[in-house]
Write a protein that binds this DNA or RNA. Structure first.
Lengths: 204, 204
DNA sequence: TTTAATATTAAACAAGTGTTTAACTTTGCG
DNA sequence: CGCAAAGTTAAACACTTGTTTAATATTAAA
């Protein structure tokens, strides 16, 4: 890993934990073991470093579900099951970064940055939308509000990951419980979301 | 409205829009038409101003659903309908402030602040939990995962309000569409959430 | 009106901010 | 090697940050 990537990794860690404005370029440089000037040398500015961070990680999230849409052997509800599990897996394993995206998304500054973040998030949402629509067209699903149904799937998973503190309180757990590294919770969330979708989407 | 309150109001506006770290005390003072030193005179520090902001607004959100729990004339699903509508109404009318709370909640700094914010949010969640539990005990509801069901309700509403940009993209709307002031969207969200909960909770 | 508490101010403070400069070192290619 | 490009550095730059100080203005009670 070269110094450019080291800086990006440190930036991801610090931006995720302390926010964009709450992190100084000197902190990032120190964490990466690099000179402050290197940040401007490689990225031009702190703001452009942020954009690089987003792009850098975005490539990992890229097109996770697109091939699923073209699969003809699975039913729509089976596809949705896979989407639910993968979304949970992804959000749990990288909850810090997802917080970073959503935090900056809710801010009034840097509108261009909001635009690119929402584009990244949409890449994983569009295939889900298509799959639900297809399920309805094929008569497998009830005629539901497609956009809000996918909002429910993502929103349920997302809200549970709001913060470790919040998650503990919702679940009524004691202080020691670490929500984000809990395997049982992922399983529980997966079952809940799948059952919910089956009862709502599948015809009785 | 005295100067102390004027400062709090300006702080709410600016913190909501630009985040805690992204807002300077001088901006707040300027917006409130007050001298910078007044912030430290009244609140002691920027951080304590933030706590005052949270407390100030928390009183408004206080105990919105507690009396609903004790109501014996409504069925559990009817109570839930009311909760859904009130939650939508509240979040839509004050989406900026809710973003502020959730943004700071997801940050690693100021753990004591996270604690008080999650306490505030829980005040509105606990009665919902009770109502769903009661519905199950009375045999009106299926035996669902209570904590995750309420997460679904709040998460659905919350996620749609992530950002105006994001909301537009999810719904497939053009640039002009302003999600947060749209009456039709509130109605649509209300119907979706109620239907979802009826199909999931009520016995067939 | 005197007096003491409260409110408000401009100015200064020290520390931290992102960024730039110019010098120096390392790298890789002809 | 020679040399240019890329990488890395310490120091300085100009500016903003939250906070404090000490002086002044306002208020309200005695």
């Amino acid at each position: 890993m070269n110094k450019r990537e080291t800086i990006i990794e440190s930036a991801i860690k610090l931006f995720s934990n302390k926010g964009f404005e709450g992190t100084s370029v000197r902190e990032i440089a120190a964490d990466a073991g690099a000179n402050v000037a290197l940040i401007n040398y490689y990225f031009g500015s702190k703001e452009k470093l942020f954009e690089s961070v987003v792009e850098y990680r975005a490539s990992v999230l890229k097109g996770l579900f697109s091939e699923l849409f073209n699969n003809k052997e699975l039913t729509a509800i089976e596809k949705l099951d896979i989407i639910i599990d993968k979304t949970i897996e992804r959000k749990f394993s990288d909850s810090q970064f997802h917080h970073l995206l959503h935090r900056e998304l809710s801010l009034g500054n840097r509108p261009q940055c909001r635009e690119s973040i929402s584009d990244i998030l949409m890449r994983n949402i569009i295939p889900v939308k298509k799959i639900i629509k297809e399920g309805i067209k094929d008569g497998e699903f009830n005629k539901v509000d497609v956009e809000l149904t996918l909002t429910t799937i993502i929103g349920t998973i997302h809200y549970l990951l709001t913060s470790d503190t919040m998650c503990r309180k919702i679940l009524g757990k004691k202080e020691g419980f670490s929500a984000f590294q809990n395997k049982h919770l992922k399983q529980r969330l997966s079952e809940h979301t799948k059952k919910l979708m089956r009862s709502y989407l599948l015809k009785k």
